[in-house]
Design a protein around this nucleic acid. Structure first.
Lengths: 101, 101
DNA sequence: TATTTTGATATACAATTGCATATAACCACG
DNA sequence: CGTGGTTATATGCAATTGTATATCAAAATA
């Protein structure tokens, strides 16, 4: 199993968890059986492109092939969009105020 | 067949042609049979992710899943990198000089 | 024109995917 | 600890992929 597949699987899994979906919930949304989602996430099946697209769509992701020379720029964009999410999480001090109470 | 798959197939085909490879040459490089490459390019098979990665690698492409909200930015990067290639092609007047001779 | 190259298509076969369904194992919580 | 939720695993089956190989028709080249 290649590094690229591992990265893709990791992206799917992280997106699922970030959205707060269990595998069953993702299954209900996407129409892919939970048992298959488990195998996909564990890397034990070599899924078809159509299946990957189906899952990605349910997780607000999209599949691309890009020139290898553009990879750093694209990783930078992905990282910065994740950074925004991280910032929004850090900018909710409500929990800290509760702790002070 | 979805729009995303069509786009991916088109990217593969364009990259192959831009590199000046025939399907047989790509087959030799990638290890994927020519007959299968023909089917992939025509959209008549739903290939596995591993096969897509193999072909992409032979064509200096890489597969990504990206957040849907990042899609416009990524398309912009891909378009601008292609623009650079177009400029380099236009900046080779050697053929025009030969015509003047 | 003859020859070569290119992409499309066919055949046969082993392996695997994806689906449906059920269950086991694991984890979190009260 | 008991309970419920989550993930992993198993079974069976139809359909398809990917491979090897060959051939054809069209296009390109010599």
């Amino acid at each position: 199993m290649s590094y690229v597949i591992e990265q893709i699987i990791e992206s799917l899994r992280e997106a699922r968890i970030q959205k707060g979906f269990s595998q069953r919930e993702l299954s209900a949304i996407s129409g892919v059986p939970q048992s298959h989602i488990s195998k996909i996430e564990s890397g034990s099946v070599d899924l078809r492109v159509s299946s990957l697209i189906t899952l990605a769509r349910a997780l607000d992701l999209e599949l691309f092939v890009v020139p290898r020379k553009s990879v750093p720029a694209i990783k930078s964009i992905i990282r910065s969009s994740q950074g925004i999410n991280d910032d929004s999480e850090q900018m909710t001090p409500a929990y800290q105020l509760d702790d002070d109470d």
